Each structure stands twice: as C-alpha cells, then as structure tokens.
Simulated scan of single mutants.
Amino acid sequence: MKQVRIKDIAQKANVSIGTVDRVLHNRGEVAPKTREKVLSIAKEMNYQPNIVAQALTTRKTYRISVLIPRGGNDNIYWLSHPKGIEKAVKELHPFLVEIDYCLFELHNEADFLKRTEDILNNLPDGVILAPILKKEAIQFCKKLDSQKIPYIFIDTFIDQTNCVSFIGEDAFQGGRVAASLIDYGLPAEKDILIVNLAKDLENTQHLNRRNQGFLSYFLDSGKNTGMKITVEIPVTEQSVVDQKLDSIFQQNANIGAILVSSAKTHVIARYVEKRDLKTILVGYEVTKKNVEYLKKGIIHFLIGQKPMEQSEKAVKRLFEFLTTHSISLEHEFQPVEIINTETITMF
C-alpha cells in the first residue's frame, strides 16, 4: 500500500504543501475552514506521519532509563546487559539515544525503590527494567503508568502491568528443560536438591517460575520418584553456604542431583568441588565463573538466555515504540540454550 504524503493531501485539498504542513504540525496561522478541510482529507486518506523521519529532522534525544541489578562479585550475570545496550545505541546512530543506568543491589528492596524514585524524578521518555522484585516492580509500574512513561521488561515477566513488550526467557519452560536434563541421567530413586540463592524467594518472580516448571515436569512425565528438597540461602558467603548444605547432606544422603535456580551456580559448584560430591549439577547462565566449573566437569549443564541480546533488543524495541507509537512484537521469548562441555565456545 502506497504511503500517503503531505503532497497528496495538498493536491486533494487544493492548498499548498506549506499549508498542510502547518495544519498537521499545528504551527502557524491557518483559516479554521481550511484547517478542518485538511484534517478531514488526511483522515479520509489514512495519513500516517513519518515519525522516524521527523526524529531525524528535529534531532530529538530519546532519554531511556535502565533499571537492572548491579553486576560484580558473585552476581556477574548482570555485567553483560550494559554491553548489549551500548551496542544498540551505537547501531541506532544517527538517532540520539541517551541511557541513564540506575543499578540496584540484587534482592535489596529498599535500594530498588530508591532507584525507581530517581527514575520518576528524571522523567525519561521510556524505561527498560528487570522486574525481579515482583511487589516493588508492580508498584513502580503503576507510577510509570500514571506518568504515561512506557516501559519494557527484560529477563523477567510479570503480569498485572502495562509493559509494552518483554524480551527474555520463558522461565517456566526453562525449569522444565532443567528437569529433563537431570531426569535423563539420574537413577529414578535418587533425591534432588533445589537451591535458591535468594533473600526472598516468594518475591523473586523468575526463580519461582523456574522452580514451578521444574516440579511440573516430574508431575507430568518425569521418571524420577525421589524427594524434591528445596532450600533457600539468602547470601553467597561460602561459610554460610557450606553450613547450610552440610546440614542438608548430613540429613539426606540420597541426594543425586542439584538444581541451582539462578546464575550463581558457581557458588554451589565451589561447594560440590570442595566436598568432592558425585552429583549431577545443573544451573543457569553462561558466565565466566560458571564456565570454569563446567570445563572442570563440576557443572554438567547450563541453561542460557543470552543477556546481551536481550538488552540490545529491548533498546531497539523501546526506540521503535517511542518513534512510531506501536510495537512489532509484544513478547519475545529467547530460545532455551543448553550448554555442556561439548558445546561451550564462549570462553
């Protein structure tokens, strides 16, 4: 279908191109009767303004706030996201996109809320966020809605919001994949330990969904009949991890596999190596520390969700929404990526 131009409207209305431009962009003096005529013809011809071209002409700077956990130490997964964001900004040139990073301490509700207030005070054009803390994220989204600031989710999806798009894993399906990997290599009678390195598991949406998917697999089709033991460890200090896991293994000698529901799989791998345990270990994300234990044979499988690709797509999709007021894809689940010693090529 041919795009309607200002020139086409001018010809049909029998006025100048300049007059149509003044009417459509609400600038300059135009007789009321002429204005009404031009608007009527524009509507009749289904005129759609080329907002992207206008953005280039006006050289508008699009200000995007990014709310994600601070990466580093045992939380290295989140170091990858800024790389994807910067790649997107570079590729969007000559459009001007300005990124304001608001980094919060993972599982720290107070810090998350402080960063959300900073964003609201800065009034960005749009927001990209990882809504890991469900209750606080919903509260923030309601405030964004009230200020009509569009937002996109990465990594984690929560309903009860008006996010314009989501890019990340299907956490429930990721949990089922992890279960199938363990089920394939584990004797049916062995127990399975599920380790959640989180301060408030109930409020951590993506970990909950992974666990739900994991358990659903065994209810539906898994052959394993052993116990599924769940533990929540709020910190990654090795002494705390050792004490907690020592107690569990002393009481449950039948554990044959461990699932770590987060990217901090290397924390549990350290324990497994230290105690020389002969267990299947499955976890998440292709980080440098996780890959080191994968190559050693301590971690058997990792499930990845390509964080750089996630964040790169999020910037481009939010830019698309800001410039066209529409979105090409509301939900994009990243393909489940299974990594073992034979497939690892990243490090």
Rank of each mutant, 00 (worst) to 15 (best):
Q3N: 15
D8T: 02
D8G: 09
A10W: 05
Q11R: 14
K12T: 00
K12E: 14
T19L: 00
T19P: 02
V20C: 02
V20H: 00
L24S: 01
H25D: 13
N26W: 07
R27K: 11
G28W: 05
G28L: 01
S40A: 01
M45P: 06
I51K: 15
A53M: 08
A55M: 02
T57V: 13
T58D: 12
Y62S: 04
R63H: 03
I64P: 05
S65R: 03
V66A: 04
I68T: 07
I68V: 14
P69E: 10
G72Y: 07
D74R: 10
I76M: 14
Y77F: 15
S80L: 10
H81V: 11
E86R: 09
K90Q: 09
K90S: 11
K90P: 04
E91W: 03
H93P: 05
H93T: 14
V97A: 08
I99V: 05
D100W: 00
D100S: 12
C102I: 07
L106F: 14
N108K: 05
N108G: 01
A110M: 11
L113K: 14
L113G: 05
E117Q: 12
I119K: 11
N121C: 10
D125A: 04
L129G: 00
P131N: 05
L133V: 06
I138Y: 09
Q139T: 13
K142A: 00
L144E: 08
D145S: 05
S146L: 12
P150I: 11
I152K: 02
D155R: 03
D155C: 06
T156S: 11
E169N: 12
R176V: 08
A179S: 00
I182M: 10
D183F: 03
G185D: 12
L186Q: 06
A188L: 10
A188I: 10
E189H: 11
D191S: 05
L197N: 09
A198I: 07
K199M: 13
Q205A: 11
R209G: 00
R209V: 13
R210V: 11
Q212G: 14
G213L: 15
S216M: 12
F218W: 10
F218A: 06
N224R: 11
K228N: 06
K228F: 09
I229N: 06
V231W: 06
E232P: 04
I233W: 02
T236A: 12
V240S: 13
V241H: 06
Q243V: 05
D246T: 01
Q251R: 01
N252Q: 12
A253F: 04
G256P: 07
A257H: 03
K264Q: 09
T265G: 02
T265P: 00
I268V: 15
Y271A: 06
T279V: 11
I280Q: 07
E285Y: 13
K288P: 10
N290A: 04
E292W: 08
E292G: 01
K296T: 12
K296A: 13
K296H: 11
I299F: 07
I299H: 03
I299R: 02
L302Y: 03
G304R: 00
Q305I: 10
E309Q: 15
E309R: 15
E312Q: 13
A314N: 01
V315Y: 02
K316A: 07
L318C: 01
L322R: 02
E330V: 14
E330N: 13
E330K: 15
Q334R: 10
P335I: 00
I339C: 04
N340H: 04
N340Y: 08
